[in-house]
Design a protein around this nucleic acid. Structure first.
Lengths: 115, 115
DNA sequence: GTAGATACATTGACAGGCGAGGTAGCCTGT
DNA sequence: ACAGGCTACCTCGCCTGTCAATGTATCTAC
């Protein structure tokens, strides 16, 4: 893996919610989408993915239902709720804040020697 | 606290190393510097700070020595090692990568409907 | 003399990530 | 017929980093 999991920790739920904004989806597909979006640089581990689904459903951010596949493996689809959308907006805003804070905290000083 | 600790998780060591790049420092001062840099929006919890020092020292990224304060509380100073500087560079690069990945993963789609 | 700041340290609990393992149906090649 | 691989889901138990609580000691101010 090219990226440490502690750097992603706390973003798992945001990433999942993000993937459900446009349309319902299911675990396997969401993970494939993540791999595509990152050009294979990142993927969620299955255990991580499914425990996150549990948390999100418990929190009322998503609901789930079984797809009616006539063939192939069964799929549990997830749909984002209104609460989920609000949560996503909040998490995204927190991310923007965190990003700035961290950048400020690990910036190498001495770059502002004007004056 | 205005920012979830899971979002910072994994950055603690990077932040500490960053604070040692210019000059030696000690726990209390580093934490004050963090508060200043983030305008009070963030601070490390003491337990987190000191366990991070242990990890970093064990890993050979920093060394420590007692200051010779003639008055006031004793201070344990930390100095960054060469290995520490290399580690910092690596962590910073990882952060830049992670930042882009996460941005790509939680970006709201549908913004590119040109064509 | 006590309240608050400086400064360091440890313990035990908690939560999220994940390796390892399991279930089950479908498809392809031999 | 069946082995191997893909799709697709799920759970147990460990590991690691964070943190509340608690403790130590010194100095300053009232």
């Amino acid at each position: 893996m090219s990226i440490a999991s502690d750097l992603i920790r706390g973003h798992t739920e945001t990433i999942i919610l993000s993937n459900l904004l446009q349309h319902d989806s299911y675990g396997y597909q969401i993970n494939k989408a993540i791999q595509q979006k990152t050009s294979g640089q990142y993927e969620l581990k299955e255990a991580t993915l499914y425990t996150a689904f549990r948390r999100l459903e418990e929190a009322g951010c998503i609901t789930s239902y079984w797809g009616d596949e006539s063939s192939g493996a069964r799929r549990r689809y997830y749909a984002i709720t209104t609460r989920g959308r609000l949560t996503f907006a909040r998490l995204k805003a927190e991310w923007d804040t965190a990003k700035e804070l961290i950048d400020a905290l690990i910036a190498e000083e001495g770059e502002s020697y004007a004056d």
